[in-house]
Nucleic acid binder design. Structure first.
Lengths: 175, 175
DNA sequence: GCATATGTAAAGTGATCGTTTTACCCTCTC
DNA sequence: GAGAGGGTAAAACGATCACTTTACATATGC
């Protein structure tokens, strides 16, 4: 496996499981089997690593969420929980742990959320045949809610969100 | 002001703004104007402080959210955002930053979420005259979603959640 | 009027933080 | 076959971490 890939995958796992600040670079390099010199050659510093992990995860996330139905969106989310666990949105966690004061991290988080919003807009268009800002907003709230409720209620939160989103879509179709 | 109150209030602010791990005990004691010896006499260790802050915030939060209507619930949430800022649920952040591995913190988080759920159940009962698990689940998802979406969309997320919750309640009333 | 409780200031504990440095080892390529 | 590129190991950097210790001040209550 490519050394950069191994680095980013290991970092993502450790950040996800133990948090960003609590994950030391020493623990990370030894877990990835990489010297610290190489790590810094690749990502510059810890914030650079965090941003690289966020971007890579964003790519993987949106590759999965590239669906065109509400059903598939939330079912895929539940699959994500099963495979990757549910510990809240990693980009929001990165933003929170750095106090919102690191511009590149804040931008990566906003990019991630913006992309999610565009995906939901497209799904709404495909489902009810027109744009509906209010419905899209509601679905994003349910999606965000499911991501965070899954940490204490388990992955089934995605199914509850799915049912509610369907109900709202039916309502919008009837209007 | 009571020394313990001053300690917990200062800690809550620093934890909220900079994160738990990133907030050092030295910075905290000097911000609160308290010696570190006194701090440890009061809360034992850092995890004890985190739990104490979580419990105090939980009390304050639920004192505010003791409403009996969907409208008041989400309006109060927006007021909370305006007054305290929106950086995600502090109890989930504490759980995440400690990797879910500190029992007292995990329990404080679950207690907080359980209390919120009971409040929502009561509101549903007051609004539509009967228990409705599905509606309560949906409202909790919207509430959780609003808390986290507010970090990047602003406090208005609470209003969008309020409108959606109303729509779902109307639907439940009609059924 | 003395003990007890509760606080402060400040130094010290060893560990760990993010990051850099030094010195060396392969494996390509021209 | 020399030089460049990309990697390793390991030590060192000063700062900061959570936490403890020592020594002293100021009240309150019996």
């Amino acid at each position: 496996m490519d050394i950069r890939t191994r680095l980013l995958e290991t970092a993502e796992q450790l950040f996800e499981r133990h948090g960003f600040t609590a994950t030391g670079m020493d623990r990370l390099t030894s877990a990835a089997g990489i010297s610290s010199r190489t790590l810094y050659k690749h990502v510059g510093n810890k914030n650079g690593l965090i941003v690289a992990v966020m971007n890579e995860r964003d790519r993987r996330f949106h590759r999965l969420m590239k669906t065109d139905s509400i059903d598939a969106l939330f079912t895929t989310l539940q699959t994500w929980f099963t495979q990757e666990g549910a510990r809240g949105c990693l980009s929001l966690r990165a933003w929170g742990e750095t106090g919102g004061g690191v511009p590149e991290i804040a931008e990566a988080m906003e990019r991630h959320k913006q992309r999610l919003r565009e995906r939901i807009d497209a799904i709404v268009l495909a489902e009810i045949g027109r744009h509906d800002t209010e419905l899209a907003e509601a679905i994003q709230l349910l999606f965000e809610g499911a991501i965070h409720a899954a940490t204490y209620r388990g992955g089934d939160a995605a199914q509850a969100a799915r049912r509610t989103a369907h109900r709202l879509a039916d309502l919008a179709r009837a209007a």
